[in-house]
């Protein structure tokens, strides 16, 4: 397996405060890699550096061996990296299908075209992406009135518009009910398997992480403190201390049931 993404000593400081320090990892082809850690551990900062929103203080990011230094998010996107956001960033004034068409127009580099009507362009392609994420029946609905879970699925469809090789998903299931979470992650798993996409995602729901991730990395105070399979991470003493906790919640829970 070849590495899709590789970071080398990735670090970021904000005014002297170390947000991310010397983070090294690789994402292999077809891999679902989870990045977990407490709030403020630097997950989003990490993501923003991978996607070009933030410039690293030091360190490099390589995509298929190519240095991404100095590239803007839109340029990294054109190299085949898709992204979904923790707080969805869809176009509220458009319909569902227009949201997808917009990304397709961008992918086909016709942003400055002023001859054709936009809503007639790439309709079929957009529709098939919506079918893929199960949103075809809502194609003509106004994006501003979609349920939250549907917005997340729409964002996934948008992220697939440029046939990405790598997908970065920042808390893909935040704010969703447990059943929806499993559904969305199952969908993601199927899509990436069929299309041979690698995924790096952050997540707080440990059920989702332990069920779906092939490999898990734990970030704490800007540093990677663990990197391994579900089993290894679950039993790692440091991870339990800083992130997973002692599992008191579940113990007490059982006590109550037993009582």
């Amino acid at each position: 397996m070849t590495d899709v993404l590789k970071t080398d000593g990735l670090s970021k400081s904000f005014g002297g405060i170390r947000a991310v320090h010397n983070v090294n990892f690789t994402v292999a082809e077809g891999e679902l890699l989870a990045l977990i850690g407490p709030n403020g551990a630097g997950k989003t900062t990490c993501f923003n550096m991978l996607m070009g929103q933030l410039k690293p203080t030091s360190g490099k990011v390589y995509l298929h061996g190519e240095d991404l230094a100095g590239l803007a998010p839109r340029e990294i996107w054109r190299k085949g990296v898709g992204r979904t956001f923790q707080i969805t960033g869809t176009y509220q004034s458009m319909t569902v299908i227009e949201n997808v068409q917009m990304a397709l127009i961008s992918h086909h580099k016709r942003l400055f075209s002023i001859l054709k009507y936009a809503h007639k362009l790439y309709r079929d392609e957009a529709m098939s992406l919506l079918e893929l994420v199960g949103m075809a029946d809502q194609a003509e609905r106004h994006c501003a009135i979609l349920a939250y879970g549907d917005l997340k699925r729409l964002e996934l469809a948008i992220a697939l518009c440029n046939h990405p090789r790598l997908l970065l998903m920042d808390e893909p299931t935040a704010g969703m009910a447990p059943k929806e979470r499993i559904g969305l992650m199952q969908l993601t798993t199927d899509i990436v398997k069929n299309r041979k996409i690698s995924v790096l995602f952050t997540e707080h729901d440990m059920d989702v992480v332990f069920t779906h991730a092939h490999r898990i990395m734990v970030l704490n105070r800007g540093e990677l403190i663990a990197n391994g399979t579900s089993e290894e991470i679950r039993n790692d003493a440091r991870v339990q201390e800083v992130y997973l906790g002692g599992g008191h919640l579940f113990e007490k829970d059982e006590d109550q049931i037993n009582a």
């Binding site: 176009y91 917009m102 961008s106 016709r110 400055f112 075209s113 809503h119 362009l121």
Partner: peptide
């Protein structure tokens, strides 16, 4: 209504 107009709205929306 053209892609340019849509791109402008997209830049505003998000």
């Amino acid at each position: 209504h053209t892609p340019f107009g849509y791109a402008l709205r997209a830049s505003r929306d998000s």
